[in-house]
Amino acid sequence: MFEARLNQGAVLKKLVDAVRDIVSEGNFDCNENGLALQAMDSAHVALVAMLLRPDAFEPYRCDRNMSLGISLKSLGTILRCASNDDIITLRAEDTADQLALTFESPQSDKVSEYVLNLMDIDSEHLGIPDTSYDTVIHMSSAEFQRICRDLQQLSDSVTIDASKEGIKFTATGQLGSGQVMLRQNMNVDREEDATVIEMQQPVQLTFAVKYLSMFAKTTPLCNRVTLCLSKDVPLLLEYKIDEIGYIRYYLAPKVDS
């Protein structure tokens, strides 16, 4: 039996909204570490890894490890039936081919029940090596989203260049080019607007900006984002969900041909 009651139901709604354009389906692993999803996009360019820890839920019950094959589109459709302040409970029997979802209003005066048919999904779990990154940037997630949105107008690629000058985002296309330079700044009115750069060594990588923009749809979940860059390895973009979990995105860089 798996049962998990999430007081902040909006977290699950935003989480599914954030990833459903990147991955259409995936196996949600339920075990003593919490509720986790690891899935690649169909082009094998981007990977989503998310975790909601057991303490995100009250209660969290998982009698044995389970893997729930879920269509993110279908789950998103059902979650749209929940209000933002609803408490969401997920429930599945050990051998079930369905996931039951209960949406409960804060005063328990409205209770809705939905059932999602599960899928058999053949997916491999990938090992992600621990990496010591050349440059790590902590910044406002809204600012990151803005930069992606602006530069996407110019090109389908964005080059991120970390040097002692700061972090430069550049896009060059047919109409011209654009660049945004971010410098370390901790002297800000709101802590979430600070830009903190931890640079071991300079690094320059180019990425498909459409993926960066899709990752940036996670902005409503977290006002901070961390970018981790190393030469010739995938970008790691991390959004922490309060103290209860995270969404991490990995993106393969473009390579000179």
């Binding site: 094998h44 360019v45 779990h125 090992g127 180019t206 498909a208 390895v233 393969a252 390579v255 041909s257």
Partner: peptide, 14 residues
């Protein structure tokens, strides 16, 4: 010119 890399060359099935 650049081509899009794939994650398969970085992450292996565990």
């Amino acid at each position: 010119a650049s081509t899009q890399g794939r994650l398969d060359s970085f992450f292996k099935p565990s």
